[in-house]
């Protein structure tokens, strides 16, 4: 299965949900926000939200800024 993660095409192997994708990437779920095909995925849905081939996923965080 291929997904578009932060604008880049990635092979998503062994991650069927948003939660498993975050675990594979080593990302702290409390510090990020996620869009799946332009809709926000609430944190409570990470474990349930299934990923499909071609999904566009954005993972954002807070960085330094004015």
């Amino acid at each position: 299965m291929q997904i578009v993660l932060n604008g880049e095409i990635k092979d998503a192997v062994g991650c069927s949900t948003v939660e498993s994708l975050l675990q594979q990437l080593g990302i702290n779920r409390e510090r990020v926000a996620i869009e799946l095909n332009a809709d926000i995925v609430p944190k409570a849905e990470y474990e349930k939200q299934l990923l499909s081939d071609g999904d566009k996923i954005e993972i954002v965080q807070f960085v330094g800024g004015g």
Binding site: L5, N6, G7, E8, L25, G26, I27, N28, R31, V32, A33, E58, I59, V60, Q61, F62, V63, G64, G65, G66
Partner: peptide, 14 residues
């Protein structure tokens, strides 16, 4: 703070 894509290649320090 600003909102930006997580950098997937670099260190996870934030």
């Amino acid at each position: 703070v600003a909102v930006r894509r997580v950098n997937l290649d670099r260190s996870k320090e934030s």
